[in-house]
Amino acid sequence: MTAIQQEITQLLLKWSKGDADALERLIPIVYPELRRMARRYMGRENSQHTLQTSALINEAYLKLIDQQAVEWQDRAHFFAAAAQVMRRILIDHARRYRYEKRGAGARRIAIDDVAIIADERASEFVALDAALVALTNLDARKGRIVELRFFGGLTVEETAEVLKLSPITIKREWRTARAWLYREISGENVTVDSKL
């Protein structure tokens, strides 16, 4: 149990119980940790630009969060909070990435495959976030399912547990949400390369 884990866990719990300031203190701690982890996993799988998803997510939760300190009844709140933090961090990051790349006189050109893929991913993140806001307005539960599964990295079963729904329902709702988001994003003429 490291000091960082304890701090992150406490801040996430505070935030999930309504302490808005906790988020502002969370992000600067979680963000560098995520970057370090990401770089290491990228390093390992660099040649294919693919990652071992479960390994990365497991490590993210194991390293960042003291799961034993979270009471069973808090778990739903807790993972929902974690997913929101992740969403906020990743989307902010994608926005800044695009700004640095395209705004302010283009920091640099794409020098390799990683940079090209990263650029495309950044665009997808920004488009997805906007679409997810719209989906949540239309159907809040589907919005939460996407947030938990996509940003929080939870499995169908874990998402079902957090939302107190059946896994079947989560699967069905996810499928609609996925189709809706895809349509929304394609409709905005954002390229979604099916090969990515």
Partner: peptide, 14 residues
């Protein structure tokens, strides 16, 4: 998951 896709991004910024 988002983290997986973001890893490329995060790593690239690195």
């Amino acid at each position: 998951s988002a983290l997986e896709s973001a890893a490329v991004l995060l790593a690239d910024e690195q």
